[in-house]
């Protein structure tokens, strides 16, 4: 293993810890309230002010402080990332476990459902659902989790299919263990590493999905998310001059996702040494 590769995993971990820290301390770290308009001494709205000592990352078209918005955005990232990952893992792992273990008709039905989920275009679906249910953070999370379990389910199922034929599972069955017990005590721990890997990547995908939905204008209007910052920058026609408004949220989003990938990759290498 080269030092470059392990260095990258370390970078990811440090960046993610930093995001968590900022999210926890957001109210104390951010210099302004992210949703309160700022005015200058003359009582004028500070529209699109470039970075200065007062506003380190400048202001938006609506006179909001970009840095404060950026800092508060970490909270949405964590809420969405973690909640979605947990929901997706719960749904996907269970569907994969049950389909793979019981096989037969149960498997057919569940895999058809998975095929269907793969047939539904993700972002359009999320937009329709959020629009129908009304834009809110929760509805965004539900819309994301409703489809994203599909790849986890497929991978876990194929793992269970091979585990099912292994000696220890057969032994447990002969010893009279119940299906539930075999599934969750004997099989589940063996698919856990793979499930965790998928969870880690799901965090990244969910955060990107939330940003996309917000960018399309279906985000929670009462929250400040990075995707929404980009949406407002775009619709207010400010992308031409206000680089301080468009670069930070996009770069933060990209760095977060890269950090998750790097940590996931490192984990994958530790869990599955054959890959490296």
């Amino acid at each position: 293993m080269s030092p470059f590769a392990s260095w990258s995993g370390g970078f990811g971990a440090i960046f993610l810890s930093l995001v968590v820290l900022i999210a926890v301390l957001a109210p104390w770290l951010s210099p302004y309230d992210p949703l309160v308009n700022n005015f200058d001494a003359a009582g004028q709205l500070r529209r699109l002010a470039p970075p200065s000592a007062a506003h380190l990352l400048g202001t938006t078209y609506y006179g909001l402080d970009v840095l404060s918005q950026l800092i508060h955005g970490t909270r949405i990232v964590l809420i969405v990332g973690i909640t979605c990952a947990v929901l997706i893992a719960l749904i996907g792992t269970n569907i994969g476990l049950i389909a793979g273990y019981y096989g037969g008709r149960v498997d057919t039905v569940l895999m058809r459902a998975t095929d269907l989920a793969f047939g539904v275009p993700f972002i359009p679906f999320a937009v329709v659902l959020v629009a129908l249910l009304g834009p809110s953070l929760w509805n965004t999370i539900i819309a994301i989790s409703f489809l994203m379990w599909r790849s986890t389910a497929r991978v876990i199922r194929s793992q269970v299919l091979s585990l099912r034929e292994r000696g220890f599972v057969k032994a447990a069955r002969i010893a009279g263990a119940s299906d539930m017990r075999i599934l969750y005590v004997h099989i589940f721990p063996n698919v856990l590493p793979m499930a965790l890997l998928y969870v880690s990547f799901d965090i990244a995908w969910a955060v990107l999905a939330e940003a996309s939905i917000s960018f399309l204008g279906f985000g929670d209007p009462h929250q400040t998310s990075w995707g929404q910052m980009l949406y407002l920058a775009y619709v207010s026609g400010s992308i031409r001059q206000a680089w301080w408004w468009t670069v930070p949220p996009g770069a933060a989003l990209s760095l977060f996702v890269i950090a998750v990938f790097l940590v996931g990759r490192e984990y994958e290498r530790l869990a599955n040494p054959r890959l490296r």
Partner: peptide, 19 residues
């Protein structure tokens, strides 16, 4: 590792930057 980077970039942000 470099190949991971474009995968992480939100397409709409790339669009904004390119524009």
């Amino acid at each position: 590792i470099l190949a991971l980077i474009p995968r992480a970039l939100p397409v709409f942000w790339i669009g904004i930057v390119l524009l």
